[in-house]
Nucleic acid binder design. Structure first.
Lengths: 349, 349
DNA sequence: ATGAAAGCGCTAACAT
DNA sequence: ATGTTAGCGCTTTCAT
């Protein structure tokens, strides 16, 4: 009966290969049952922690051990529900995200879930990535990408598996989101610059497709305008050290150097800082620099960067909490804006 | 019939809740078949890309769309083989690993596999983590942890799913491994220091449990001894910026500063560099510093660190290749030592 | 406490 | 080309 699935591999003559292949097969609960001289359900009960007599349990465990049996955890997806969570993540090499990923893994595994990780390459394949993950009957999805388009979000909303957006929110559709209050953070930086009396602001931007980046920019620009500040120079188009460095090089060719610089992420700021300093510009003497994220490196002596901290741990905690309550039946799809925290360090005069 | 599984949730009176719950269920191929007026196998064939008439395919797709049906990709684990790969990874926040993870994800997804990611918290739960992943009937496992003990490796060898170790190798058991030739790299650094005429070497160590760390140290120490160099001072016990900084602080209190410093990882070197420079020590004027890994930050202006590059891409490529050949039936369990490459930058005199 | 038997959603033989 | 019928390895009734 079990040999049936082997039929296609074994010719009628090659009887002994049966045994070979049988050995290769992972043993099933039936095999264990036979070996132990009990019913298959006894095996199942033993491993799912139900009431079994000590004698039976003992026989089962002994047989399982002998055969190297391990219950197939995936099969719970049939009789019960899956305990898989899909995590779709872009920009893994931006130091902000490994921190997030680690926290997510810990929080989810702690609650008995396993994670299927899908890599996102820019904005374009977000759609396919989510479809893909959905095919594995995950119990929920966490998408950490600021590139997410709203069409995809709508598709998420249509699917009956709860989706939580991390670092991106979209109003008007029933999808939860946890994100730093980027607009407000941008305003904070504008206020900071105005309060200190700076006159010539500049902004180094991340990807123009990234929502978080746009929000930071918007808050910054709007608030400057409200307070009658000058419109900032804009440079950059991606979150990377090299882009920050290139933007700073461009700044240096300006007739007049800006006196304050807001970078949409810490990595951008690092590139700018290194370039400015290499050119003999004093930071913060001649120009103040503010970053965003507060990744661990921002605190390092080489940078000592004033920045806006995204409270990662808290954001992850909230994201997981929201996902859990949706999995447990809640239909609420809250959008949580977590305030960024200003971290004053040496790059601000 | 399908309502059966709902029985436990619905009381005999609450007939209408049946419908409610039915809506919540993900539709099955049978539902689609009914809706389309075809057999269930027609649905299966449509989605597994077998020969179906255009008319049937059309009916099926239309029905599937109406019902929001999506074939359950996990179930292939039953009739066929799983396409899941377990990736077990520690130290995710060490910048070396996100690079590795990204490359792994891309390579594996490219070949049609999905990854289940398990976080490893130090050495202690490696055993449980691997067991856990094994329970999901993954097709193969990649373990990236230099903390791996040989007992666990043996357990991997016993399991019939192929395991590839990344950054750790163990002789004498049938488990493949891809790792940088750490011993040789350590020797390279020793040679470098001796060639340049340094006399007072120091070494900042990562975790004493980490095999890669020990190998680097061994190669370094052995070669120094062979060439009649002084035995180095040893500091540190973990791969982190703070440990590097603390170690450097200790160095500074020495009566005589070492003239060359080998750090077992780039992050250690960064901490040491920042601390030394902050104390007014000239690098490389008074002391030369060499790191390990060549993570992207090592090339940044702030550090410009001389280091040993681990050829990440190539290592990942090899790891995936070896895993694939094992999955495709090969029983060879090669151990590949990839040579590190010296990258000369500004911190070496 | 235990075994027999009926599914779970799908793929693959088999039959038409 | 299509439908029918067995399974896949497990969990869950249902008897005993």
């Amino acid at each position: 009966m079990r040999a049936k699935r082997l039929a296609k591999h074994s010719t009628s003559a090659a009887v002994q290969s049966w045994f070979e292949m049988k050995k290769r097969q992972q043993p099933s609960s039936i095999d264990v049952a036979h070996h132990a001289g009990v019913s298959q359900s006894a095996v199942s009960r033993t491993f799912s922690g139900q009431s079994v007599s000590d004698a039976t349990r003992d026989k089962v465990l002994r047989a399982a051990d002998a055969l190297g049996y391990r219950p197939n955890a995936l099969l719970r997806v049939i009789s019960q529900q899956s305990n898989l969570i899909g995590v779709v993540m872009g920009e893994i090499t931006n130091p902000f995200y490994p921190e997030v990923l680690e926290a997510l893994l810990i929080a989810l595994e702690e609650r008995g879930f396993r994670v299927m990780l899908k890599h996102l390459n820019g904005a374009k394949d977000a759609d396919a990535a989510i479809e893909e993950v959905l095919a594995y009957k995950v119990r929920g999805i966490i998408v950490t990408s600021s590139y997410l388009g709203s069409e995809i979000a709508e598709r998420c909303a249509k699917s009956d598996v709860p989706v939580v957006l991390f670092n991106r929110f979209i109003h008007g559709i029933p999808v939860s989101a946890i994100t730093c209050d980027n607009v407000d953070a941008g305003r904070m930086v504008a206020n900071l610059f105005m309060d200190r009396g700076f006159r010539r602001p500049a902004f180094i931007s991340g990807s123009p497709d990234a929502n978080s980046n746009l929000d930071r920019k918007k808050g910054f620009f709007d608030r400057l305008a409200e307070r009658g500040g000058a419109a900032p120079v804009v440079l950059g188009d991606e979150h990377s050290y090299d882009v920050g460095a290139k933007a700073a090089t461009e700044l240096l060719s300006w007739p007049e150097l800006p006196d304050c610089l807001f970078c949409a992420s810490d990595v951008l700021a690092f590139g700018a800082l290194d370039t400015l300093r290499a050119a003999g510009v004093s930071v913060p003497g001649q120009i103040s620099v503010v970053g965003f994220d507060d990744i661990p490196m921002a605190a390092w002596g080489a940078f000592n960067l004033t920045t806006l901290r995204q409270p990662r741990r808290r954001m992850v905690q909230e994201a997981v909490d929201v996902l859990m309550s949706r999995i447990n039946g809640s239909s609420a799809t809250p959008i949580r804006l977590v305030p960024a925290e200003l971290v004053l360090r040496g790059t601000l005069k």
